[in-house]
Design a protein around this nucleic acid. Structure first.
Lengths: 360, 360
DNA sequence: TCGTTCATGTTAAACGATTTAACGGCAACG
DNA sequence: CGTTGCCGTTAAATCGTTTAACATGAACGA
């Protein structure tokens, strides 16, 4: 075997032609046309077995690396999927990103990443730049306050658009996410079944679809149990640890604090757990808490967090599938995938303590 | 203003030419050559002010979106930076990814993402695919067991290669990360100063550079304090919450358990905190624990985790810078950026309890 | 023997941008 | 009035690949 892995130092002194192996180069060397080389490398039946093997062997030996940009120019297919996420540090989105990346690469697509950081202006810039690479599809979790027009602007270039996790209602694009209304209602029902009647919510934002749906789920859960909705028990803010901690502190400071709470996501719940501990309360006894999403971290906690499992990797894969299907057939009917969530009971929920916790 | 945001339903019935605005189209419409359009759009001084404005206006009106693939073919510069990470769910890598993405997009680059999932074979496939898009640079955190040859294979195509967080010693590529030997030693020194003499390590793996360096830092810290190294106090495994929890359980089960421990990363430490709590021990009193990296989550914990801050976003930006600099000048001398870490003392460390915790 | 078919290859034209030498027009200059 | 110089613009080549249309023989059936 010859050593075709040049050292960086060596590379500096080498003659000239490194990394410049093209179809034309191979064609010249083999005395064939570029067409034949191209077909041979892609295992076309139009080229004879012997030639194909020869071509592939020489290509490997010369270290040929196809130039997909050039190919894309000709075929109008890049095999790139642009991922526009509003955030990637939040673990639920990290899990989503991982699942989507996995599903897409398995299907031969490559991921071009853009992060909006929950800022519509930045999102516009970022998605615009991504569009210049002509991805076959956009997979988007829109930033808060995004409008239908923001997504339409993408689609106007003829690129497939799929929404994941979050959606812009009425935008008419494919969507994959969890059925949040049902999901949060599930958490409320669990608390109600344990005997809680005063249940708070560590909430998200009304500016994003998940915030609205999860709040709706909270209300639906209360209504189903015949409990009245008390707006003072609902906190609003970003679904972060710090915020969850603050929100729980505020709930506890109420004149008539709740005995339990559901939350917008697990991160809020983790923060709340910290606050409970800091306040000297024991979760699963003095206070009950239900998380949302059931990310990997939830079951590692002590005590284990009762949470609503939303199958993030599953709907991430579903979103990838939707994108692939729309690339294959741009005129297919719009499809929505809403995964039904499942309550996972662990140790942060228990019947309310009847007496002492009530100031009044 | 005219409404150039076509509805998806509308798009179906529209004549024909949507999203197909090219330089040539604009040229025809304006009665100019493509050369002029190209120059005008890039604000070249060679084109008259009036023409430039006219061109830019029409381009905007027609919704022109440049095709970077085509441009790249001509200029041999894609403005893509390929990011090859071994993992993206671990929050420390998430923080890194976020910082790198931010720095690169600020510099006009776009991120093409590949994840190896700590699997060399998958890494080879993934990086190979990324290479087909001809990124201007590769930013890589190599999977465990990667060899120099794995990176050299990339560089042989003439693409800049920069290592981040992890490195392959002797590979001769740029690197940005933290000075882990100093870092962990800092943690050990802190515990020693508090009076601990029996200090364990919740460890990583020897198959990755950070695992080796952090272990070396542990040993260096002990040596500096005149303490002897006891291999039974060192645990090995992936730096995950579950694993940290298991490792701490094993440490506690020793005949002569340590009174404190440093860890490979914060995740291990968080897991260990869970285990301590589950074991009925109070961290910061019965046991002292020092994390590593000081990710955002560390300060939200209750009690706050004492940890060694490694400036992940900073060295992420440094890595991005190294890539940009090497793109600009491929023959510049190899550069290594090793950020000095800083100990952040919070509430998980305290002097050892002198008596009862010793079985013997 | 003479079309036909078949198996393999080749030619040449895209794809959409960038780049550079050359060009036409015009004002100024001698 | 011819020449020079400048300015704005253009023609044409180029990047690396794919693909429709065409060429070349050999084999085959009649």
């Amino acid at each position: 075997m010859d050593d075709n892995i040049p050292d960086q130092a060596q590379a500096g002194q080498m003659p000239a032609s490194i990394g410049k192996v093209t179809l034309q180069g191979l064609a010249r060397e083999l005395g064939l046309s570029t067409a034949t080389i191209s077909l041979a490398l892609r295992d076309s039946p139009m080229v004879a077995e012997a030639t194909r093997l020869k071509v592939q062997e020489v290509a490997r030996a010369r270290g040929y690396v196809a130039n997909r940009g050039a190919a894309a120019l000709r075929t109008a297919r890049t095999n790139i999927v642009a991922l526009g996420l509003h955030d990637i540090v939040n673990p639920s989105f990290t899990e989503l990103l991982a699942a989507v990346e996995d599903a897409l690469t398995a299907a031969g697509k490559t991921v071009l990443l853009g992060v909006s950081q929950e800022d519509v202006a930045r999102q516009t810039r970022t998605l615009g730049t991504l569009a210049e690479y002509r991805p076959d599809a956009f997979l988007v979790s829109p930033a808060a306050y995004s409008t239908i027009a923001d997504l339409k602007a993408l689609a106007s270039t003829g690129i497939a658009v799929v929404q994941v996790t979050r959606e812009i209602e009425g935008s008419g694009f494919d969507f994959a996410g969890s059925d949040d209304v049902t999901g949060v209602a599930l958490g409320v029902a669990h608390l109600v079944a344990l005997g809680h009647t005063r249940i708070g919510m560590l909430g998200g934002f009304g500016a994003i679809s998940t915030g609205r749906k999860r709040l709706a789920g909270y209300k639906a859960g209360l209504a189903a149990a015949g409990l009245t909705f008390d707006p003072t028990l609902v906190m609003e803010g970003p679904g972060l640890r710090e915020e969850g901690r603050r929100q729980l502190a505020r709930l506890l400071a109420l004149e008539e604090p709740p005995t339990a709470a559901v939350s917008f996501n697990d991160l809020s719940a983790f923060g709340a757990l910290m606050e409970l501990q800091a306040a000297g309360l024991t979760v699963g006894r003095d206070f009950s808490l239900v998380g949302y999403d059931d990310i990997g971290e939830a079951k590692v906690w002590h005590p284990g967090l009762t949470s609503v499992h939303t199958f993030i990797p599953e709907y991430g894969r579903a979103a990838a599938d939707l994108a692939l299907k729309r690339i294959a057939d741009p005129s297919r009917p719009v499809e929505r995938v809403e995964m039904p969530p499942k309550l996972v009971v662990r140790a942060t929920t228990a019947p309310p303590v009847p007496v002492k916790r009530r100031p009044l």
